[in-house]
Design a protein around this nucleic acid. Structure first.
Lengths: 246, 246
DNA sequence: TTTTTTGGTTGACGTGGGTCAACGAGCTTG
DNA sequence: CAAGCTCGTTGACCCACGTCAACCAAAAAA
């Protein structure tokens, strides 16, 4: 079998070996020799405009997606209309893993801004995992990381008070922006207060008040979606020393 | 390579092909021809007494575990002592997936009763997944199912009120007992009110009060850990129609 | 530019569930 | 079988966060 370099709709090569996100994405930690073989994995890129769905709960599962540009939220809806945001995803992160188990997506993925993803056909991934030593392990690590992340969110939702939740959220965003070469102290959130609230199990008013409180206390400076972390250590202390409600 | 039948400490064969839990466990859905090859996967069984740890956060990750008998809880601890139970596991379910990502376990697994697990060396699983067609897919499905389950817990913690959470918990237990050939209406819980509370993001008093309320309303009959679901449909309605707090 | 819409902030007030405390029922251990 | 546990139940009280509502800023539309 020969690896062919796939061509996308917009005529750009979608080669993992040439992507600057390797460090963050599925191929992380793979040997160069293996990496070049990966190029046949990514079929095409797909653009998703702000507010559009990459996939919806109920859609047949066929591929997973690596975010090349932009960001997403995933959420679950209850029959009665209640929404729970289950995560926010940034470049290099993988979307769609929820679909493997039942071959049907179980949540919605919505672009928070105009974004672009690499489409990774799942059957091809399965095949290549059999052949490329490192790919299987990496993929397992990606899934496992998602499980660990989810446990962190459960901790947050189950055992922390409002301000602790927001502090944890801000520190997490900071760390992820930093990993992508952006400032860890200053960044623009892509989601609304309501979406943050849904993720943190709080109402938007509570999120807004917590932001204001942090600003009063000199921990951060906020203006709409623009956040400046003035005292990250202070935020960390907030999480560790404050005793929980539950 | 020849498959050898491994012998455990207690002299019993640990063969997936002869295990009555195949329907629920990792081998689910695999062809008979593939199944027999699986027997070399399970190294040994390990007994874990009530209250003992199968593994702890920080332990080096080497194996995943399939529950042969008994049940477990997994939890995460915060520096300040707060505990969040992230799940309860029953026979046929897989423990330890959290360890793959960092090669270190990120949570604790504690037996809720005297239990026994099949030890599946992870490196062997990786190898065999390369060779056995169906094993890789099944393993991916198991991990994906865990992710979907976690999203369900987030929904519960983030968007439901106390009674809804307990109703969802009871229905989930009921369904899982049923899948194991036990009554879906009558069962004995293995965990304390405090552990249920930690899982549901509630205090034990709140859990206890919700149990009492359900009994008053004729939805269930409880006596300590013994539960009888008198009106499962009523519990379901409670989740769907009650409007959430958040 | 003005108008409209969407998102964010803030205040006043209400309540679900947390806190604290007493008590009782099973289990275990001597 | 008493003594000491652990676990579960229930009541009284309280507070963190939800609810409702007014208002403002930014962004989008006209």
């Amino acid at each position: 079998m020969r690896a062919t370099v796939p061509i996308t709709v917009n005529g750009l090569k979608t080669a993992c070996s040439q992507c600057n996100l390797v460090e963050l994405c599925l191929p992380f930690g793979m040997a160069d020799s293996e990496l070049s073989r990966l190029d046949e994995l990514v079929g095409a890129r797909r653009k998703v405009k702000r507010q559009q769905n990459l996939y919806r709960a109920g859609d047949r599962f066929e591929a997973i997606y690596a975010i090349r540009a932009g960001s997403f939220k995933t959420d679950v809806l209850l029959e009665d209309g209640r929404e729970q945001v289950t995560g926010f995803q940034m470049t290099g992160e993988i979307l769609g893993l929820d679909g493997i188990s039942t071959e049907t997506h179980s949540c919605n993925a919505v672009a928070l801004e105009d974004s672009e993803v690499c489409v990774i056909a799942y059957d091809k991934l399965e095949q290549l995992s059999h052949q490329i030593e490192g790919l299987q392990l990496q993929f397992h690590k990606v899934m496992s990381r998602e499980i660990v992340r989810d446990h962190g969110v459960m901790m947050l939702l189950g055992s922390m008070r409002a301000e602790e939740r927001l502090a944890a959220f801000l520190l997490n965003m900071s760390q992820r922006f930093n990993a992508r070469g952006f400032s860890s102290q200053e960044f623009n959130l892509r989601m609304t207060r309501e979406e943050i609230g849904s993720y943190l199990g709080l109402k938007l008013e509570t999120v807004s008040r917590a932001f204001s409180r942090f600003q009063e206390d000199g921990l951060i400076s906020v203006q709409q979606k623009h956040v400046l972390l003035l005292d990250p250590a202070g935020l960390k202390r907030l999480i560790q020393h404050q005793q929980g409600v539950r």
